[in-house]
Structure formats: C-alpha cells, structure tokens
Amino acid sequence: MRLAAEGLSGERGGERIFSGISFELESGRALAVTGPNGAGKTTLLRIIAGLLPAAEGRVTLSGDEERWPGVAGACHYLGHLNAMKAALTVEENLAFWRAFLGATGLFPQEALEAVGLGGIGHLPFAYLSAGQRRRTAIARLLVSHRPVWLLDEPTAGLDQASASRFSALMREHLAAGGIIVAATHLPLGFETVEELRMGKRQ
C-alpha cells in the first residue's frame, strides 16, 4: 500500500499557505510533518483526509483499491478535537465509534487497556482530565482498523509514560503495514520516520 501526494497546495481563507508538497509513503513508513505554527501542518492533514479541497495537486492511495477505494475512507483522523461526547461514558463513546466505523479492531475495553485507561470505562467523558481525554481519542484509533493514521499533535497533553506507550502503539501499527502521517513538534520516538519540514512562506 502506498500513500502519495503530488504537488499539493493548500489555501486558508483564500491565501496560499503552502505549495508544491510531495511525498510518497510505503506501508510501514511514517512521515513526521514539522514546522512552525501557521506553516499549514493541520491544513495539510485535513487535505489528505479530504476535509479540505486541495488548491492544486492530489493525494492517492494505491495498493488495495478493492478494500480501500478512497483516501478518506482509509484514514483515521486524530485532530485537535477528540470527537467524543461529554454526556456519554468513555466506553459508550468508543462502542459507538466501533459500530459506526466498522467493528474491525479491538473491543472498547481492550482499547482502553492498550492506552492505560483500563478502569475508567464507566465514567462520563466529561469527568476525564485533558490527558485522559486524549488517550481515549487514541483508543478510538484501535477500535476500528484503518491503514492510514493522520495524527495532528497526537501527544499534546500526554505525560511521558503515555507518550511512550503511544509510540509503542504507533510502532505496532507500522509493523502491521500501516502508514502514519503525524504533525508534531516532538520526536515520535522511533526510527522509520521521514521528515517533511514545512516553512512559513512569505
């Protein structure tokens, strides 16, 4: 499986914020997108996810068209927001995403244990701390299988132990033939990473 971007340009509010971004990722490879605030890291991820139109260029996913016909359908997107409902319990939230996205991954309880939140499935999501909310959102990546993970500042708010647990999860995903594109300021904690440095264009 191969995720490729050719000559991508992104616009926000009618203003071109980056152009000519190209990369190719084979199965098992990760791409760390770095750059200062405002360089367009989130915009790039949203374009790959199909949430924003690309001003120029295109993103393609090749290799297993039968199972994953489109790029957006093959991606897990972990944005700044956690996509969890405060009024529901942690486990209800994950069970919903598992049913909605396709029950091809871990059970909610197992996914919570994988991110180190084994005992809190019964709590309303609203009661969790920022770091615990983030870990619940990471558990969402595990309840349904997607070959491509798009991660936007995935470790924001995580403590050291949780961050290293998450890099272990990412390594597992890559070892299983997955692809990761992560916008980050911190090192991801493993070697099979290419780096895409985005600068601020004036």
Partner: peptide, 16 residues
C-alpha cells in the same frame, strides 16, 4: 462540529 465528531462523520462518507 465543536467536538470534532463532524469531521469523522464526513470522512466516513465511503462507508455511510
């Protein structure tokens, strides 16, 4: 939209 769920609903277009 406020909690990010909308992004995922839009992305799941191929499935639902």
């Amino acid at each position: 939209r406020e909690d990010g769920t909308l992004d995922l609903l839009v992305m799941a277009d191929a499935r639902h």
